[in-house]
Design a protein around this nucleic acid. Structure first.
Lengths: 142, 142
DNA sequence: CCGCATCCTCTCGGATACTG
DNA sequence: CAGTATCCGAGAGGATGCGG
C-alpha cells in the first residue's frame, strides 16, 4: 500500500510534467514546438548514442579508434552519424592536414551536457538490469 | 593506450560513470552484460517513446484512443510496438471480453519509473530547445 | 588515415482491406 | 473495437574498393 502511494504520487508528478510538453511531441506542430521528436529522431538510430557515450569517456577520439570502440559499425554509417552529430552541435571535428591526415572528434560543451543527461538514464538501466532481464523472461513466454 | 586529458569537473564525473558501464554497451558481451544497447534498441524506433509518454500522462488508454494521440501511427505498427512493450514489462494489457471488445493499456510500475527517467531527459531537451535550434542553424549551413 | 562511392540487402513502417 | 493479413516502397545499414 505504501509503495502504491509512492507510485501514485510519482504518477501525479509525471503527469504534470507531461502536460506541459505535449506540444513538443506532436508532429502537427512546427519544428520549433516539436523538440522531442526531433531530438529523439536524431539519436534514436542504432549507433548515435554509443558514439556519444564513447566520446563522453574519451575526450578525444580519431575516426578509426572510434570505429574500434563502437564495435560493429561500418565506415559509411560512422561518417554519416558523425556528420549529423556535428551538424547539430553535439560534437566537434578537428582536422589536421598532415600526411597521413589526422582527424579528432570530441564533444562540444553542449554535447557534454547532453551525455551527462543521457548517463542518468543509462545508469538507471544498469541499476535495473536484473529487473529488465527478469521482465523479459516473465512476459515473453511463447 | 588512450591519453585522457581531463577537461573539467563535469567531464571527470561523467568519465567515472561511463567507465563502470562500458561492458553494458559492448555487443561482444553477453546480453546480461549489455543492457544499454538492448534497452536503446527497444525504444529507439519511431514510436515507442511517444507511446510510453502518452501512457505516462493518461493512466489508461484504449487502442484507438492511443492511435489518436500518437498521431500518424498505423494499426500495424501500434499493435507491434504494444506487444514488444508488453513483452518487456513496460506496459500492461487488460482485455475485457465484452461486445464490442475492450482493451485497456497502462504502464506497469516499472514502466512508470522508466517514463519518469525519460522525462528528465525530455525536460532537458525542452529547456535547451533554443540552443538546439540555434545549433542547427549555426552548423548546418548548406 | 579518413572517409567517399557503390552496390546490395533487409528491416521498418505506411496503406488498405478484412475479421471475431 | 481491436486488431490481423498483405503488399509495397523507402531508406537504414552492411561489405567492399578506391582515392586524397
Amino acid at each position: 500500500m505504501e509503495k502504491e502511494t509512492i507510485v501514485d504520487n510519482q504518477r501525479v508528478a509525471t503527469g504534470k510534467k507531461l502536460k506541459k510538453m505535449f506540444g513538443h511531441i506532436d508532429y502537427r506542430n512546427p519544428p520549433e514546438l516539436c523538440v522531442i521528436r526531433d531530438v529523439v529522431s536524431l539519436t534514436s538510430d542504432k549507433w548515435s548514442i554509443l558514439i556519444l557515450l564513447y566520446l563522453g569517456y574519451f575526450p578525444v577520439l580519431r575516426f578509426n579508434k572510434l570505429k574500434k570502440y563502437v564495435y560493429g559499425i561500418s565506415n559509411k554509417v560512422l561518417s554519416e552519424r558523425l556528420k549529423v552529430l556535428e551538424g547539430n552541435g553535439y560534437i566537434k571535428r578537428q582536422m589536421y592536414p598532415e600526411v597521413p591526415i589526422r582527424v579528432e572528434y570530441s564533444l562540444t560543451p553542449f554535447g557534454q551536457k547532453y551525455v551527462a543527461k543521457l548517463l542518468e538514464l543509462t545508469e538507471w538501466m544498469q541499476l535495473n538490469n536484473p529487473i529488465i532481464l527478469s521482465n523479459k523472461q516473465k512476459f515473453q513466454i511463447k
